[in-house]
Every structure is written in structure tokens, then in C-alpha cells.
Design a protein around this nucleic acid. Structure first.
Length: 371
DNA sequence: TCGGCTAGCACATTTGAAAGGG
DNA sequence: ACCCTTTCAAATGTGCTAGCCG
């Protein structure tokens, strides 16, 4: 009941419905946002329930920003990749990032609720090609794709929750399918990108702005590829990703083993051909054999349209020069005032509203519910 | 011709349901 | 009936490769 009222009221600013983002209401909470057709979004949201225009941030509701700190827990692994030139595979179906972002948060108010978001923005305006053993800019970047954010599945959660564990964004997937409907983050191949993590105080989300912290780790920059270009990256991935164990030297999928299999295949095929050649009458039995088995294998959506830009988007991919110090981009706050709220605000609204209803003096929640 | 992309492959890991025992 | 552990199959995540496409 509450969700019916709350969800659309937080969903979209009517003025931005044309390029809004949303997450399917049935989708898992961690699913990022994706742009629907405008018709679909319009149908999903009764006009009477569309959101009010963004409310300017009220300084009185702000929490001190200076103490919030984020640490990249697997920084050393990222640095290993970065020193070679990190490549991330992107596929039509979506591919996870490896290494993943593993983070530690501190300085949050333990009792306040926060939402964690991941987004990935172009690091510069170039397209790249791997030649001469390195990445060279070979032209201008393709048109920027619609921004999608990945909401951490635990969101919203208390500061105590976030600070008590390692925060991982390993569920986030990257795709090059511009028509993707799975909510994966859409990127261009052969472009350089920079992941960012945003910590947003839940209260401020409801108020369309305010207390957020954005973090950028230069060592997490990467170039998107559909197939690995640099053998060193392949080696690093195979050696450090447990899912790729099979490709290690001692694995069944190592080059040695694969070559051996290939040889066996060829010899079996040759023998089979010999048999067929020797006795055509027996070929019927062979034909019955399968030729080959083709086994194919709520937080509501908060849409962010205008996330802060990198301080210098034209910087080159020079891992050796990268500052590995955590970079807080607080000069360029996440502008939730311009953000597109998604159609899935129900869960977050319910949980937050419930909590706020239980908190005397929470006029924010009351305003949202009653308004 | 060539660079980039895709589908399918084999293998490893993860996940969740079912079975078994206390 | 309940809880815990173990087992197993399915789903999912990997990189590799042949072949397609512009």
C-alpha cells in the first residue's frame, strides 16, 4: 500500500522522463538501472504521482563529510593489473569485473542509513588500439552511452553495517550491448573508463540531494575489450581469478592440455574416417552418435544522471604515474537534484519510511508519505 | 586483408535443493 | 519436528578459439 504511493512519488522527475533510468521492479535489488523506453516509463508512472522537482539541499540536514573514508582493500591486486594496463572483458550478456572492487568504509554515522552506488565513467575522450605492445589512442571516443549505476545489494543499510564488513561490487556486470535490458553497465569497447563509488545518506536521497561522498581510485582505471590484447593481463587474470584456474599451467584447460586434446580429437577423427572408409555399412551406427552436444548454458532504483566528472578527463593511461592515494571527489558532489529517480524506489522508500516513522521528529519521511 | 566481435567450448567455482544423520 | 552436515546437480564465471562481419 505504502509502496503504491511511495514508489511513483520518488520515481521520476516529470521533466526528465525522456531519458530516465529505472530498474525493473522484479529485478534483484543489486541490479543496476537501465533506461526504459519512454513510453514504458510513462505508463508505469501515473502522472499524478510523478515526483516534485528536486528540493535544494538543506545545509541543516547535512552531515560532516570530512570523516568519511573509503579504502580499496585489494589495492595491491589492482596495482598489479594497472602496472600492465588493466583490461576488462565486456560481452553481450554481461561480464563481471576482475579484479572486483573490494572496499572498506569508515567515518559513517553508525545509525544512519546509506546507499552505495557504483558507476563507471569515461576516463578520456579517446578510442584505443593495442599496438606495439601498448595501448595507443587512435581516435575520438564514441558517443557517450547512457549512464547506469549499480546499487549495492545491501543498500540501504546503516553505517554500522557498511563499516562492519568488506564491501564488494562483484555482482556488477559490464556489457557492450547498447540495447541491454538486464541492467548491466553499458560501455564501449576499446575505451578507457574509471569506476567511481558513491556513498549517499539515505535521508538525502529522499530529499533529492545532499550528503554524498564520491570516491575514485586511479588504479582501478581500465580499458574495455572483447578479447584480451595483452598476454600479461591474461596471465595475471588466469593466475589470480579462481574461475580461471582451469587455464593455469597445471589445469586441464592449460595450453598443454588443450593441445593434447586437440591431437586426440584429430586422431579419433582420423580413425573414424578410416573405419568409414573401410566399411561403409557400419557408418549408420556412427551417424546415430551425437555429433556434438550443444549445451548452451529493492532498494528502488535511484537513477543518476549527472554524476561528478573526473577532475581531468583528458588524462592519459599512465599507471606508473597514477596516484594510488584514494581520491575524494567532494568538490563535485553527486547531484541528486538532477538525478533521475527510478521506478523502483518502493523498497527503499518502505524500509526507510518505516524506519523514519519510528523515529520521532522525522519530518522528512512524513512529508514523503503524506505528500 | 585485417581488426574487432560473437558463439560455443571445456573447465572451475558457486549456489541451492535434497538427502541423511543426530 | 528440527537442526546441522554432506552430497550432488545446475547455474554461473572463466579464457580460448574458430569463424563471421564490416
Amino acid at each position: 500500500m505504502l509502496s503504491v504511493e511511495m514508489y511513483p512519488s520518488l520515481a521520476l522527475g516529470p521533466q526528465r522522463i525522456g531519458d530516465c533510468f529505472y530498474r525493473d521492479r522484479q529485478a534483484p535489488a543489486h541490479m543496476p538501472l537501465y533506461p526504459p523506453t519512454c513510453d514504458a516509463a510513462a505508463k508505469a508512472l501515473p502522472p499524478r504521482l510523478l515526483a516534485p522537482p528536486p528540493v535544494p539541499n538543506d545545509p541543516a540536514t547535512k552531515t560532516p563529510k570530512d570523516d568519511v573514508k573509503m579504502e580499496l582493500e585489494n589495492a595491491s591486486l589492482w596495482k598489479q593489473f594497472s602496472s600492465v594496463g588493466t583490461e576488462m572483458i565486456i560481452t553481450k550478456k554481461g561480464r563481471r569485473m576482475f579484479p572486483g572492487l573490494r572496499l572498506k568504509l569508515s567515518g559513517l554515522n553508525p545509525s544512519l542509513r546509506y546507499i552505495l552506488l557504483l558507476d563507471i565513467i569515461p576516463a578520456d575522450n579517446s578510442r584505443y588500439r593495442f599496438q606495439g605492445g601498448g595501448w595507443q589512442a587512435v581516435g575520438g571516443a564514441e558517443a557517450r552511452l547512457p549512464d547506469r549505476v549499480f546499487i549495492h545489494p545491501d543498500s540501504p543499510a546503516t553505517g554500522a553495517h557498511w563499516q562492519s564488513r568488506t564491501i564488494s561490487f562483484h555482482y556488477a556486470k559490464l556489457t557492450n550491448n547498447t540495447l541491454d535490458t538486464q541492467g548491466h553497465i553499458i560501455l564501449h569497447s576499446l575505451h578507457r573508463y574509471q569506476p567511481r563509488v558513491h556513498v549517499i545518506e539515505a535521508r538525502d536521497v529522499l530529499r533529492w540531494g545532499g550528503g554524498q561522498h564520491s570516491f575514485v581510485f586511479p588504479e582501478t582505471q581500465f580499458i574495455t575489450v572483447t578479447a584480451y590484447q595483452n598476454n600479461k593481463i591474461t596471465e595475471l587474470k588466469i593466475n589470480s581469478n579462481p574461475f580461471a584456474k582451469g587455464f593455469r599451467e597445471d589445469g586441464m584447460n592449460s595450453k598443454k592440455q588443450r593441445d593434447a586434446r586437440q591431437k586426440r580429437k584429430i586422431s579419433v577423427l582420423t580413425e573414424t574416417l578410416d573405419i568409414v572408409n573401410c566399411d561403409p555399412c557400419d557408418s549408420a551406427e556412427l551417424l546415430q552418435q551425437p555429433i556434438g552436444t550443444t549445451t548452451s548454458t529493492d532498494l528502488q532504483a535511484l537513477a543518476l544522471a549527472s554524476l561528478p566528472q573526473l577532475p581531468d578527463p583528458s588524462c592519459g593511461f599512465r599507471p606508473e604515474e597514477a596516484s594510488y592515494q584514494d581520491t575524494m571527489v567532494q568538490e563535485q558532489p553527486l547531484d541528486l537534484g538532477q538525478a533521475f529517480m527510478a521506478s523502483q524506489m518502493s523498497d527503499i522508500s518502505i524500509s526507510m519510511a518505516n524506519e523514519m516513522q519510528n523515529t520521532p521528529g522525522s519530518e522528512v519521511a512524513n512529508n514523503m508519505i503524506e505528500g
